[in-house]
Nucleic acid binder design. Structure first.
Length: 487
RNA sequence: AGGGGUGUAGCGCAGUCCGGUUAGCGCACUUGGUUUGGGACCAAGGGGUCGUAGGUUCGAAUCCUAUCACCCCUACCA
């Protein structure tokens, strides 16, 4: 039987594309740069959404929805913001079509030109702060802690499923505060929420830190990031949280009266994660056999395969076990298909990343046992049918932990401290991964490294101490920072 | 955005250079049968505006022009 998925060692990009397609997460659409997220891929997103949404609610946030379209003039109100996004905006210029006077089909009606063009949101700061202006009058109106689940459009030249698409789904939190300290605390709190989600639910270890001035969000004073390492040694920015200072408040004139009856500008944050996390999930855990998912985010956690095929007796046992699993909150499906043979199904479910597969046949029933196969290690064991639900529940926990530990080990093996520029280049070239090095703190040095090596400054880690000297200039450095080639 | 490549059935491809019966092959799909504890086998079927739009020609998957999409390598980005 032909191998359906390219090996990682052969062609990592192709491997990624194969997984996305074969595990039916997404496919290319008729629209340039836009993908169709298929039911399996969307189910993963729904799992992520429901958990994140819960965490946002627990930290006091509520959901709302703002328009898809943004008046062009709004975008230009914050100078750095417009500079960051102007190059990748979709623009709506007309509001009507007409029959083509010169032939078949329809054309844009030239008489229907918009007075002011509309931008399809690349992010919503401007429309939101234009709205907050009306909502905020007094310190009593603050804080505003709002999140929205939405789609955004960034007109990218090169796209890849989930990692970079012209349209993507995300959440964006936008908060307004009366003090600087409170806004910084908010940005850091959400940074922490993202890190916890990545590690506890995606089983994906991340480095928490701040972005350099050069890598900051357009319009932010500080950007906090979680950076993950993919299996090919490249870094992926998995979530960012921004302290926006008073930039947007000033651009949109959002002021409040404090308790001394004095006008003050409002302090802002924004934070977001996107469907890119699905790409991160794929590239963190999957193998040459297909998708591997952490149980907490797997749309289907357990599949029961009757062997060789469903019949009355086998189904009786299968349904009983399925009921026991559901009792414990485990999602389970019995494969009642009679067309394919067990071997085919095994390969199929491995490709799709179902964490646990249970095989039940005549032999098992005679021995009061069940065959339990785990996707992550590809090992099988026979387990007594009594207490099987308990066993599977523990197994899922083990797998969740095991996937994190494995990813963590890989990540830790690929954080390499270096003390001079030659060593930096050598490690980047031959080993890849995160490189921990001293840096003098200037954009100039950062850009030189990028020009020389293509590595970017991923983050200035929170938990790094110890002074040193910059590997490029020899100037003093407050702490080591993380460089890597990135997605 | 620059360079290179590819578009032929759901998927993977041959055919294109050198135009000429009814456009092929493998997998997948349908039906019947035999199988069934790690990707089964036999037989008979169904499925194509050859990416799209023009053009050249008696005749175009094949030649010409335009256009769109995707892939790889660079540049930019969640």
């Amino acid at each position: 039987m032909a191998k359906e998925i390219t090996n990682r060692s052969e062609n990592y990009s192709q491997w990624y594309n194969d997984i996305v397609r074969k595990a039916q997460l997404a496919e290319h659409s008729a629209v340039r740069g836009c993908m169709v997220i298929k039911p399996t891929g969307f189910a993963i997103w729904e799992k992520m959404q429901s958990q994140l949404d819960k965490m946002f609610k627990e930290t006091g946030h509520i959901n709302a929805y703002f328009p898809l379209f943004i008046p062009k003039s709004f975008l230009s109100k914050e100078a750095e913001h417009v500079e960051g996004f102007a190059k990748e905006c979709a623009v709506v210029t007309h509001h009507r079509l007409m029959n083509n006077p010169d032939g078949p089909g329809v054309v844009v009606d030239p008489s229907a030109k918009l007075e002011e063009e509309l931008i399809v949101r690349p992010t919503s700061e401007t429309i939101i702060w234009n709205t907050y202006k009306d909502w905020i009058k007094s310190y009593r109106d603050l804080p505003i802690l709002i999140n929205q689940w939405a789609n955004v459009v960034r007109w990218e030249m090169r796209t890849r499923p989930f990692l970079r698409t012209a349209e993507f789904l995300w959440q964006e939190g936008h908060t307004a505060h009366s003090t600087k300290a409170e806004a910084i605390e908010e940005a850091q709190k959400m940074h922490e929420v993202y890190a916890r989600f990545a590690e506890d639910y995606m089983a994906m270890p991340v480095i928490k830190g701040a972005k350099s001035a050069n890598e900051r969000f357009a319009g932010a004073l500080e950007t906090y990031t979680i950076e993950a390492l993919m299996q090919d040694g490249k870094a992926l920015q998995a979530g960012t949280s921004h302290f926006l200072g008073q930039n947007f408040a000033k651009a949109f004139d959002v002021k409040y009266l404090d308790n001394n009856n004095k006008e003050q500008f409002v302090w802002a944050t924004s934070w977001g994660v996107s469907t890119r996390l699905i790409g991160a999930l794929v590239m963190t855990h999957s193998d040459d056999e297909g998708l591997v998912l952490p149980p907490k985010l797997a749309p289907l956690q357990v599949v029961i395969v009757p062997i060789p095929k469903p019949n009355g007796e086998i189904m009786e046992h299968a349904e009983r076990i399925a009921a026991q699993l559901k009792e414990k909150g485990i999602s389970v499906k019995i494969d009642t298909d009679k067309k394919n043979r067990p071997g085919f199904k095994f390969a199929e479910y491995e490709m799709k990343g179902v964490p646990v597969r249970l095989g039940i046949g005549k032999r098992d029933i005679e021995n009061n046992q069940i065959e339990v196969a785990r996707r992550d290690t590809k090992t099988k064991e026979n387990v007594s049918m009594d207490g099987i639900a308990e066993h599977v529940a523990n197994l899922l926990d083990d797998m969740q932990r095991g996937l994190f530990e494995k990813a963590l080990a890989h990540r830790n093996e690929h954080i390499t401290p270096v003390d001079n520029y030659d060593q930096f280049k050598e490690v980047l070239e031959n080993k890849g991964g995160f490189i921990s090095a001293h840096w003098d703190g200037t954009t100039e040095t950062e850009l030189k490294i990028k020009d020389d090596t293509k590595a970017t400054l991923r983050c200035i880690p929170d938990d790094e101490e110890g002074e040193g000297t910059c590997i490029v200039t020899g100037k003093p450095s407050k702490q080591r920072v993380i460089f890597a080639k990135a997605y």
